[in-house]
Amino acid sequence: GNIFIKNLHPDIDNKALYDTFSVFGDILSSKIATDENGKSKGFGFVHFEEEGAAKEAIDALNGMLLNGQEIYVAP
């Protein structure tokens, strides 16, 4: 299952995104959108192997604080 994450703190990188979401299941890919200079655009995507893991991550993390910013997590 794919999920979309927005309002990410600029310091959150691909590894931090992966580490945050990997507790919910096996991740096939995770990516933070960046500009041409490699600076985070504040949103990203995680693709879980299983749909159930994606739903669990959405339920658990939507509205949670990550590096002091409330993140939005949705399908």
Rank of each mutant, 00 (worst) to 15 (best):
K31T: 04
I12H: 03
Q69C: 15
I32V: 11
E50D: 13
N67C: 14
M64G: 08
K6H: 03
G52A: 14
K55S: 11
S29Y: 01
K6R: 09
Y18D: 07
K55R: 13
N7E: 05
E51Q: 10
P10G: 08
L28V: 05
A16G: 07
V23G: 06
P75A: 13
A57S: 10
G52E: 12
I58N: 07
L61T: 07
K31L: 06
S30V: 05
V23F: 07
Y18N: 14
S30Y: 06
F45V: 00
A33P: 10
F48A: 00
Y72R: 08
D13E: 07
L66E: 08
A60N: 11
I3V: 10
S30P: 04
F24I: 07
I58Y: 08
H47G: 02
D35R: 10
K39V: 08
F43S: 03
G1R: 03
L61K: 05
A60S: 11
E51D: 11
N67W: 05
I58S: 07
S22P: 01
D59F: 09
F45Y: 11
I27V: 08
N62E: 12
D26E: 12
N67G: 11
T34N: 10
G63F: 05
V73M: 09
D35Y: 13
G42I: 02
E36Q: 14
N14T: 09
S30W: 06
K39M: 14
H47C: 03
S30F: 03
I3T: 09
G42T: 09
A33N: 07
D11N: 10
I12D: 01
E50L: 09
K31H: 03
I3N: 04
N2S: 02
D19N: 12
N37E: 15
K15H: 08
G1E: 05
D35E: 11
S40V: 09
K15P: 07
F45A: 02
L61F: 05
G25E: 01
D35A: 14
A57V: 13
L17Q: 04
K41V: 06
K55G: 10
H9C: 12
P10R: 14
E36N: 15
L66A: 09
I58V: 14
D11L: 15
L61V: 14
Y18P: 02
L28P: 03
P10H: 13
A57T: 10
F4S: 01
V73T: 08
N37D: 13
L65G: 07
H9G: 10
E70P: 10
V46N: 01
A60E: 13
F24L: 07
I3A: 04
I5S: 02
I32T: 07
D35P: 03
S29G: 02
G38Q: 11
